[in-house]
């Protein structure tokens, strides 16, 4: 239960991180990579510590979005130390990630790069139509969240690329949101999760399911779900057909609950 030997270097600038050698691994909070290393599921040759690189700590506000440096911690969002483009939705989600000691160190970028299918930011940032910004030797790439995660613990990041920022669009003033996750106990990874975004001013409507053992699933025809012309059970059953899921009914309930929360019919409880 101790990590295998590795080299360690603290990077001070983004440029130093962009020409990695084989089996170099960027690390910030170490809350996902750390357990993997202690269990020897991950054995990087060298850790490049990116936690304090100024570009990765920077937050830039624009009229239509906020760009979060990838090394922004969950606790910084939870505590309102950063702007929240979603007027509290991100803050509430951040406050429910794992436990405070994990939130104090864990980062948004690290969570996305780790791409645990049951992680909060994976589903929440997909639900919010966020864009991931990735830097590599030839410059930056912008990847919508729904194209960033390819599978369980698998992303679109290239070997020489680093996730540098996450851009979250600002919803309109009448926008609504619901996020529900089921866990066996507080702080555990979700067994099922769902988000509902209703943003009429920007013509953005999205319903998504998470904790599916792979990338989140964005549901077709979100307006029909929001208007109630199709049932959650039918829509989830169509979206997940062919999958062997014990959690099917939990996903239906998560979607119903996220929808009720977005429509103002119940308090957001997780």
């Amino acid at each position: 239960m101790k990590a295998a030997a590795f080299e360690y270097r603290r990077a001070d600038t983004l440029a130093e991180t962009l020409l990695p050698e084989l089996n170099d691994k960027p690390v910030a909070g170490n809350q996902s990579l750390g357990p993997m290393m202690n269990l020897r599921l991950a054995r990087p040759r060298r850790l490049i510590d990116i936690a304090t690189i100024p570009e990765l700590r920077k937050i830039v506000e624009s009229p239509d979005h906020v760009r979060f440096g990838a090394a922004t911690t969950h606790a910084e969002i939870e505590d309102g130390e950063t702007p929240d483009p979603t007027n509290g939705w991100m803050r509430a989600a951040a406050g429910n990630i794992a436990h405070r000691a994990v939130r104090n160190r864990g980062t948004m970028g690290g969570s996305l790069a780790h791409a645990d299918p049951a992680a909060d930011w994976v589903i929440v940032l997909t639900g919010l139509e966020a864009t991931v910004i990735v830097a590599g030797p030839v410059g930056e790439r912008r990847i919508p969240m729904e194209d960033f995660i390819n599978g369980p613990y698998t992303t679109d990041l290239g070997d020489s690329e680093l996730l540098v920022a996450i851009e979250v669009p600002r919803p309109g003033s009448s926008a609504r949101w619901g996020y529900k996750k089921f866990m066996r106990q507080v702080g555990e990874f979700a067994k099922a999760s769902a988000t509902v975004l209703i943003d009429p001013e920007n013509d953005r409507h999205r319903c998504a399911l998470g904790a599916l053992g792979g990338p989140p699933v964005i549901l077709a025809d979100p307006l029909a779900i929001i208007e109630g012309s199709v049932s959650a059970a039918d829509i989830v059953s169509a979206a997940l057909s062919g999958r062997q899921l014990q959690s099917f009914s939990m996903h239906v309930a998560a979607l119903e609950s996220a929808l009720a929360s977005a429509l103002g019919q119940q308090e957001d409880c997780a």
Partner: peptide, 16 residues
């Protein structure tokens, strides 16, 4: 407690 915040010391390398 690291810089005022609770931290898992098994998930922080001493060099960090």
């Amino acid at each position: 407690i690291v810089d005022g915040a609770a931290v898992r010391s098994c998930l922080m390398f001493a060099v960090q």
